[in-house]
Amino acid sequence: MTPGARTQAAIELLDQIVAAAAEGGAAADTLVGRYFATRRYAGSKDRRAVRELVYRAVRRCGERPPSGRAAMLAVAGEDGDVAAGFDGSPHGPSPIGADERAAKAGLAPRWLLDLLRASGLDGDELHALIERAPLDLRVNRLRAEPGEVAARLEGARAIEGLPDALRLSAGTDVASLAGLVEVQDAGSQAVTLATLARPGGRVVDLCAGGGGKTLALAAMMANDGAILACDTDRGRLRRLMPRAEGAGITIVETRLLNPNRELELLPEWRDAADLVLVDAPCSGTGTWRRNPEARWRLSPERLERLVATQAHLLRIAAELVLPGGALVYVVCSLLDGEGRGQVQTFLAAHPGWAADRPKIGFGRPHCLGLRLTPAHDRTDGFFVARLKRPC
């Protein structure tokens, strides 16, 4: 592909990403994969170059841009090589018009920046939210040792404080290690440690999704005990068991729940779980390094719905924890309304429950929990709190 053709491909992809963000469509990574699946003529260097252009433009635009071309013009305004790609060639974009406006640069929509600043973030903390993330792995000790896996991966580095974690350059191919490793951000691994899951325990992962934290819990438990992995999304939950089987995990059972009727399908787990993990749906403000277009998907109305869902899930979880047991609440958000505010509201409504701030070697105290940030911890952003039910 010529430089112009690469630029035009990036513009076409950005148009799809902008539309998907506005309409709640597929994620950017999915759209990029689909795009090149139908364009076999594009070699690996072309795909890599186009992807770099796309994500450079996405990170550049804090607000959702009016079009893919406007987003790419923002990049062209600061890079002469990209501007040269607007050359009017047969497969390239038309030349830049004298009156064309590029999308505005920024970190995030103004209303979101205001909420982040009100939650105690500013300066370097904000800029780090959209930096490019490395690739982190969790080694499955049921199948392999970290040193053994690291020897097979050029440039793999251990992560201090996480004995099962390895860090690699973004884009490293780890497909050949299926079952031996799971792709999981170091922050996600760290907050899972807050569960203090132990062999023989009875655990509910109430928002299991595809099972990343479920598998990490099973490894912490040495595949001994019982984990009930729940979700209301059939498609995501269906992916969990094949992953568990590939990892050699046998203690997981899945259960599809009906939204707003979850407890009806959990009768035998009421007052019975040593631990309930609520890895709640959230704004994802802590994951912008990996999903920068997520800034364009969020609205005040959607955030309000997410906060209501989080409070609902906490109420359900409280019904499942046995006396003396623990509820661990996690969000990959840095907004106080989804983190500290939820914990404060929960404790006010549940007399006798108490916060037991986790000690995981990552993050900083934030209200009654811990907050991990990209700038401080070199991980995705998280809030985690551990709540104990009275005996």
Rank of each mutant, 00 (worst) to 15 (best):
G62F: 01
F36S: 03
L107I: 11
Q189R: 14
G211Q: 10
A385D: 11
I316Q: 15
V307C: 08
L121D: 01
V328W: 12
C61D: 10
P358V: 09
T195H: 15
P300L: 01
F86I: 03
G4A: 11
W111D: 00
R364W: 09
G147S: 02
G77F: 00
A118D: 02
G248N: 02
W269D: 03
T172G: 02
P292I: 11
D114H: 00
G341V: 12
L256F: 00
R202P: 10
P267A: 01
T285K: 01
L368I: 06
Y329M: 13
A226Y: 13
W111H: 04
D114K: 05
R236Q: 09
R39Y: 08
L73Q: 05
D377L: 07
S119E: 02
M221Y: 13
P199F: 04
L129W: 03
G286M: 08
D279K: 11
E182S: 15
E268M: 05
D114V: 06
R295Q: 09
P351D: 04
L206G: 13
N258F: 09
G337K: 06
T2A: 09
G80R: 13
D136I: 08
D185T: 07
P242D: 05
V343T: 13
R238P: 09
K45Q: 12
H350M: 04
A98V: 15
R297H: 07
L306A: 04
T38N: 04
T30P: 10
V307W: 07
N223A: 10
Y41T: 07
L263C: 11
G43R: 00
D173L: 09
A170W: 07
R56M: 12
G369P: 08
L129S: 08
G62Y: 06
L73A: 08
D114S: 02
V58C: 10
E304G: 13
P267E: 09
I249K: 06
L257N: 10
L113Y: 05
E160G: 01
A5M: 10
